[in-house]
Design a protein around this nucleic acid. Structure first.
Lengths: 211, 211
DNA sequence: CTGTGTGAAGCGCTTCACAGCG
DNA sequence: CGCTGTGAAGCGCTTCACACAG
């Protein structure tokens, strides 16, 4: 079956909502409730879940811990993922101390080109040179958080690909070129700012646009 | 005319590519070249531009500075936008010193709830309490960068809305509830990580998925 | 003869109505 | 009888073929 990639993003939202419901001690929920919290329709919730299976009880709803477990399984959050941070500037350093990675994502390496930075302690590790990537990545690190300046992003991505990285979370405002077997996700806040600017200027967006 | 919102994101990419071409001294380009750099089809490039007008010359192509100017106009980047950072933790502080906002986006306020932080200098300003928002936002600040912890995000968003904010760039992993006239964009890197995990586990994505 | 601009076709996501199961 | 699960309809984005301008 074909699964819309937008559905994956929504599953992530549903999972967070389930965790909030669980924290509140709520044991049972419905597509209606999930839809309201996620700001989508109940149709959408049920369709998104149906791409992967049937996790509810007809006439009753969903059991929070059950659906939570299933979503974690679908999204691959029941295993452990090794992360590297590449580019130890302010953003990279902030991420190195970020407490929200949980049990699922584990920081296992910190890399930079700057000889001044190499050897310095960050988070639970020490900054290593980019040349160390081929030894550190295989079998230990699946995903890299790429937090280098824009101009350095493609070169760093190339090195990561050569070292055998599986996915890159790219914080730089560039379109990375990587082999199709390497996954890339962009976290581009400047693009977000620009979209906001556009939406603010065009509030009647979707009704009728000037040509 | 209806404009797909995905088209806006691509226009932002085209603009960046034009700036790179200009930096390289290239004066003329084509939908073909833009498409290759942006990793989309030339059809897509021409259609995206056609939603807003005709900026090229048939049989010739596009003039880099002309198309750049037009895209900046469409995206609202030819004016100045006032920004606030709300939540001066590590991420907020990193953003306060970020050099890439350019002439278009100007940091005009830094806010936090923590009395310990208030009065401290950051970037080109000083941290103020959330209570100051109603005085500082109207007429000066259009967009807020929301970098508070997840639990505090909705409350902070409410205060921003009351102060008259036009758009919120939300870095917290939550679905914010705001009036429909306030624009929200999410910069959720945990969601990005989770999508990467899913795509790595499902490389044959799009062909056939297990049920 | 070249590359843009665009109406129309194609296709994939969303919406829907209701069948199905508890 | 209630809420889920889903085939099918609807609709919007993408792709396309080609008219058209230079």
């Amino acid at each position: 079956m074909k699964v819309p990639s937008a559905a994956i993003s929504r599953l992530i939202t549903y999972l967070r909502i389930l965790e909030e419901l669980e924290a509140k001690g709520i044991h049972r929920t419905s597509s209606e409730q999930l839809a309201e919290e996620a700001q989508v329709t109940a149709f959408q919730v049920r369709k998104d879940l149906s791409y992967f299976g049937s996790y509810g009880t007809r006439g009753v709803g969903y059991t929070v811990p059950v659906l939570k477990r299933e979503l974690r399984h679908i999204l691959g959050l029941n295993r452990r993922w090794g992360l590297a941070i590449v580019g130890m500037g302010r953003l990279g350093s902030a991420l190195a101390d970020y407490p929200g990675f949980g049990e699922t994502f584990e920081l296992r390496g910190f890399f930079d080109v700057d000889p001044e930075k190499i050897g310095k302690p960050v988070g639970r590790g020490v900054i290593e040179p980019m040349e160390a990537l081929p030894q550190r990545v295989p079998g230990r690190i699946e995903i890299a958080l790429l937090t280098v300046p824009r101009e350095a992003a493609q070169e760093a991505a190339d090195q990561l690909v050569r070292a055998g990285i599986k996915g890159i979370l790219n914080f730089a405002p560039v379109v990375l070129e990587v082999p199709k077997e390497v996954a890339v996700e962009n976290v581009d806040f400047l693009a977000g700012l620009t979209r906001l600017a556009f939406f603010i200027l065009n509030p009647k967006w979707g009704e009728e646009m000037v040509g």
